[in-house]
């Protein structure tokens, strides 16, 4: 007869976005690493995007019994906190000090980050623009962006433009409109269309060229590096108040900022890890150099509505 502990392992239920847990994403390797140390069973449930994760727990009041949400980004943090569905992470300040980014949020913990950028194929586009103003002057460049209402990179672009242009954002959006050939619903749709040749540049991350160079051995894809700076996106995880297994959830949160988890981020999620000193990530940094960063902005609902308003008023 098997011991009871082997038959009924503790369960950790994590809600995340689709690509994280796909067989080519970091999820399966992270699951394996964590299960080796926790003597538990990790169950993933997915929603199709980062925005959909928060909607799901809001709609159900977490009746589905998730312990952790992994994958909402910094632009959703304030809205997520306002739902009152999340518990503080309980990590000490010394734990957070190990991170390579400044972090003092009490509810959410970062697990990776990136910078928004436009990606282009250097074999097709010479002399890429070095600023937004240069981009709007290049009528030969057709760009693909994402809808800020349905995509976090889309919202990221709206934030990026607002950070640089402030009250002039609406005019800037208008000057950009002629070059926007597709406004995709999600990042993956937009990026797919770019790779199919529907645009000359696509809104993505400075880390995207690393994927092409390392996974596809294609070094033609490059990020446009703007001298006036790039907006940042931080992906976070948080523990739910009604988590059935809080102890295990807390253990996973600590694990998320450890080497066992972070090792799988650069070449699994193709984003910057939040701790330094990971082996085998030098190639990743070679193809995904850090750009000039703009100041971090923690968006409130009002901020987001304003950024979206600037964008939508330019297309009416």
């Amino acid at each position: 007869m098997l011991p009871l502990s082997l038959v009924s392992k503790e369960q950790l239920n994590i809600l995340t976005y689709d690509s994280f847990t796909s067989e080519w994403g970091p999820g399966p390797s992270i699951q394996k690493s964590f299960e080796e140390i926790c003597d538990c069973q990790v169950n993933w449930t997915t929603a199709d995007s980062s925005g959909a994760l928060l909607s799901r727990v809001k709609l159900t009041d977490n009746k589905e019994g998730f312990d952790i949400i992994l994958g909402i980004d910094d632009s959703l943090m304030s809205e997520a906190k306002d739902t009152n569905l999340f518990s503080p992470h309980a990590l000490s300040s010394s734990d957070l000090a190990k991170l390579n980014i400044d972090w003092d949020n009490e509810t959410f913990v970062p697990f990776d980050y990136g910078y928004f950028s436009f990606i282009y194929n250097s074999s097709k586009l010479d002399n890429p623009p070095k600023s937004f103003d240069e981009l709007t002057n290049r009528n030969d460049i057709r760009i693909i962006i994402m809808d800020p209402r349905t995509s976090t990179p889309g919202l990221g672009l709206a934030k990026w433009i607002y950070q640089l242009k402030g009250e002039q954002s609406k005019d800037f959006w208008k000057s950009l409109q002629d070059q926007i050939v597709i406004t995709a619903k999600s990042w993956s749709d937009g990026y797919g269309l770019f790779l199919e040749g529907e645009g000359d540049a696509v809104l993505s991350y400075t880390t995207s060229p690393a994927y092409h160079a390392i996974a596809e051995t294609d070094e033609n894809y490059k990020a446009m590096l703007f001298q006036d700076g790039h907006a940042e996106q931080i992906e976070v995880l948080g523990m739910l108040k009604s988590a059935p297994n809080k102890k295990l959830a807390q253990k996973f949160i600590s694990f998320a900022i450890s080497k066992g988890f972070q090792d799988h981020i650069p070449l699994g999620n193709w984003m910057y890890p939040v701790i330094d000193g990971l082996e085998g990530s030098s190639d990743f940094y070679k193809y995904a150099p850090m750009p000039i960063s703009l100041d971090r902005v923690y968006a409130s609902k009002k901020d987001k509505d304003l950024w979206i308003e600037y964008w939508s008023s330019s297309i009416d």
Partner: peptide
């Protein structure tokens, strides 16, 4: 899902 993950 495959299409959205570069795996055309």
């Amino acid at each position: 899902q495959l299409y959205s993950s570069y795996r055309y």
